[in-house]
Design a protein around this nucleic acid. Sequence first.
DNA 1: AATAATTTTTAGACAAGTCTAAAAATTATT
DNA 2: AATAATTTTTAGACTTGTCTAAAAATTATT
Lengths: 218, 218
Amino acid sequence: MFSQSEENYIKTIYHLETISNKGISTNAIAKKLETKASSVSDMIKKLSEKELVVYKKYQGVKLTPFGKKNAANIVRKHRLWEVFLVDKLNFSWDEVHEVAEQLEHIKSPKLINQLDALLGFPTHDPHGDPIPDKDGNLNVIDKILLSSLLKTETGVCVGVDDSSSEFLQFLDKKGITLGKKIKVLEKEDYDDSLTITIENQKLSISNKIANNIYIKKL
Amino acid sequence: MFSQSEENYIKTIYHLETISNKGISTNAIAKKLETKASSVSDMIKKLSEKELVVYKKYQGVKLTPFGKKNAANIVRKHRLWEVFLVDKLNFSWDEVHEVAEQLEHIKSPKLINQLDALLGFPTHDPHGDPIPDKDGNLNVIDKILLSSLLKTETGVCVGVDDSSSEFLQFLDKKGITLGKKIKVLEKEDYDDSLTITIENQKLSISNKIANNIYIKKL
DNA sequence: AATAATTTTTAGACAAGTCTAAAAATTATT
DNA sequence: AATAATTTTTAGACTTGTCTAAAAATTATT
Ligand SMILES: [Mn+2]
Ligand SMILES: [Mn+2]
Ligand SMILES: [Mn+2]
Ligand SMILES: [Mn+2]
């Protein structure tokens, strides 16, 4: 099949396509993968030869349906493993990503199918991100950023946009975790900071924080 | 840490050392890894620089205590994953090896510790092989080959020497699995074939088969 | 002990994946 | 429209791990 490196590239392109849907630029890929643009340029040619992406020089890349299917499968594996780590091995949500980055490359369809069953066919990972099904389809729920909630509105925390350990640990400290109910008491015009209630606690959070938390409105 | 390739080399040397305890020859390693002697020669130099093995030209290699500790840890991971696949994901004992070959390279001490706990701290893998503890020590039970049992003697099947799918599937077909009680009814002088009873069934097996089944005498 | 056979090492090449530095193309600014 | 800034690609080099072919060392056989 594909090398670990090739898999990381198509996964990155997949993620970038969920944001922009234009051709993905060499630089954007390089930044996400923490590599050099020249390396990306080289790899893109290989991916193109393998029909994983469509590529015209200087125009960025797009995944082919074949590339998208493969990328979605890697994301599926990543997120299923994250669920496994949290549900079965008592990892916290800020510890799983690094390990899942390794586990996502294990090649065994049976392993993933059985893991899926063991976990009870989860639809979302520990960060609220949807798990693609075997065909690469995902069940997207309509979530909005906490920063877009208005004063007096209420919602449930359903995901995070930043999955870094630092941010997740910060949320843990504040008691903000998936499933918690949040009500906006105040919204400062000056800096867009919020005062919210969560589990009967009053809490003040900056706009930067509110911009990384997804809410489903109630 | 060490690359996947380096890990495969020290694991192979580790296994070969359990058989011979002399310096392990370049050719022996090449054969097990299905690679060329020249590649082994190259890699041995690298392992030696990294203090994983002691090496004098033309003399074969031996693992250093450091190398042995690392190798045992890879074997530990391999066997714990095999238990996981059988106990939690309904794999059969002939399906696990290939996947465990991949999983053994995942780097995360917490993952392995938690997996160990999830599995109830198993001491042996699905093929009856002992699982090294965190320090690399293993609990070796005194097992003997079925071929060394004498007429009228009885034992319990506790392991296999050949873990290939073909052999394991053959054993499944014959109903020979770990924990089964076996009694030797007859032993042919001519070809050393055996007639045994297992689960009240009379069965005839060749010496080649009997040479790959481990028994604990009763 | 000399010769033959085998094992092991070295020399040189290659593929994958990455990098730096420089060239080419594109995009932004005057 | 010309120039400047930025992005992207190419050229050439390096590392890891592998290979083939040949040389060197060891072991076996006469
Ligand atoms: Mn993740
Ligand atoms: Mn996630
Ligand atoms: Mn195995
Ligand atoms: Mn095993």
